[in-house]
């Protein structure tokens, strides 16, 4: 059972964004108040302790990216957001050895790397589409948060994150977005509060270990 969220404001416009998200591939979407979005410094630290393979290799990943204070300040400028998820079958997200396949970046015969990458790309695309639509229907500003690191999703074939390794300019400034977790947003907690079944999926999981996985995104609009 989803917990009631407080103060959604602009319900009609937010409903239009919610419907658009579902139409374009989100498995579920919900309007949330920024007051209900959990921000926790532990979430950011989990990217660094122990170090994720992408920590420090992407401009949005800790120790780079948004410090907690910045995320808190962003939230102060918004009252509401659209929180959505894209469902991923456990046969893909918890496929045997998927963790090492992701880390190595070498495609597997089963196609799970590219399939999972496609799901991530959908999350980035949805965040971008929702932000544009929000401006079209009268919101004056937006902020988007996606899932995982944008380097592997948007610049998989490129060597290094250009923002860190090159001239400082992002190759995909329009599509790129920080992940919720990199900004210290506790997406798992928000999903659970939304009544969505979110499982802890790690390297040791296999398809039968969990029912499903989900990738989440968040767009704030004001």
């Amino acid at each position: 059972m989803a917990e009631p969220f407080s103060d959604n404001g602009d319900p009609e416009k937010m409903e239009a964004l919610r419907k658009m998200a579902i139409t374009h591939g989100a498995s579920n979407a919900r309007v949330v108040s920024t007051a209900d979005i959990p921000i926790d410094p532990r979430v950011r630290f989990k990217c660094m302790v122990p170090k994720c393979y992408m920590s420090g290799r992407c401009g949005h990943c800790p120790p780079y990216g948004y410090p907690i204070e910045k995320t808190i300040n962003i939230m102060k400028n918004y009252r509401q957001g659209l929180f959505f998820h894209v469902r991923v079958e456990s046969s893909i997200i918890a496929a045997k050895d998927i963790s090492s396949v992701i880390t190595s970046g070498k495609a597997d015969d089963a196609g799970n790397l590219y399939s999972l990458g496609g799901h991530y790309m959908l999350v980035y695309t949805l965040v971008n589409m929702i932000r544009k639509k929000a401006i079209q229907i009268g919101f004056s500003r937006t902020e988007g948060f996606s899932a995982s690191n944008c380097k592997d999703v948007l610049c998989f074939w490129k060597k290094g994150c250009q923002r860190l390794n090159g001239d400082g300019a992002c190759r995909n400034p329009e599509m790129s977005a920080p992940s919720m977790e990199s900004a210290g947003i506790d997406a798992f907690k928000l999903a659970a509060k939304s009544g969505w079944q979110v499982y802890p999926i790690g390297a040791l999981c296999e398809p039968q270990s969990v029912k499903r996985g989900m990738l989440m995104g968040l767009v704030l609009a004001a």
Partner: peptide, 17 residues
């Protein structure tokens, strides 16, 4: 490796502070 800008840990998920 992780201490360099734009570079990652070559033993991810292993080393802890």
């Amino acid at each position: 490796n992780a201490a360099g800008r734009g570079k990652g840990c070559i033993a991810p998920y292993k080393g802890r502070p």
